[in-house]
Design a protein around this nucleic acid. Structure first.
Lengths: 116, 116
DNA sequence: CCGCATCCGAGTGGATACTG
DNA sequence: CAGTATCCACTCGGATGCGG
């Protein structure tokens, strides 16, 4: 990558922040991965991620639906069941996440001199 | 990218979180860019980023030094001056940031139907 | 089962003043 | 100039209970 110029930096800023809003934080990527793996129902997702509370999960799922990373479908019947599914679009994040993963793995090696 | 397998996901998790710890949050990338642009001194960096308080800047710079993204040099003389400089290593983040930028820009187009 | 409402403690971060 | 210290408002998120 070439040296970043000033103007590029400033115009880079908003998109970078947007992306971090969407996948940043403690839970978003975990939830996305859980859903990619095939977990569909609220409790199912909740149980797949230790320490995640219903309040937070509820909020995160709402955010992710707004951002078109997942779809939410309420099934008829009682008790109510809801299905969350990843969108095709959500997969465009995999490249980004992979990049984060590579950098993080390499960084840990550098800082701690060992892997996980 | 191929479908992520379960084990890959789990081993992806820690590195991704590490990376987000390091560049996530409201300020880290802004500070890094400011320093990449050539700002060297505490006040200089502070003034280059609106709404950034000294307390937060202080903490962030400390974190970034620990993570070897910047170096901190105290110059002799009075009043004391300090120089922060980006490391070569910090530039390995540019690819990651570029990826975040691309995804964010494209996402905004998708969601809002327009650019910035 | 799904998910919201409430209460509440801990941590974050802003403003300001102060020291070396 | 470079940062620390203090005070304080606010947010975040955990625990729990409830209603649909």
């Amino acid at each position: 990558m070439k040296k970043m110029e000033h103007k590029e930096c400033m115009s880079a800023l908003l998109p970078v922040r947007d992306t971090l809003d969407i996948i940043g934080g403690k839970w978003k990527i975990l939830i996305l991965i859980s859903i990619w793996e095939g977990n569909k129902h609220f409790r199912e997702i909740e149980r797949s991620i230790p320490k995640l509370s219903t309040k937070v999960l509820s909020k995160e799922l709402k955010d992710m639906e707004e951002n078109q990373l997942i779809t939410r479908t309420v099934l008829n019947g009682f008790p109510v069941r809801t299905e969350y599914r990843p969108t095709e679009y959500s997969k465009t994040l995999q490249k980004v996440i992979l990049e984060l993963q590579h950098w993080g793995a390499n960084h840990r090696k550098k800082i701690f001199g060992r892997e996980y």
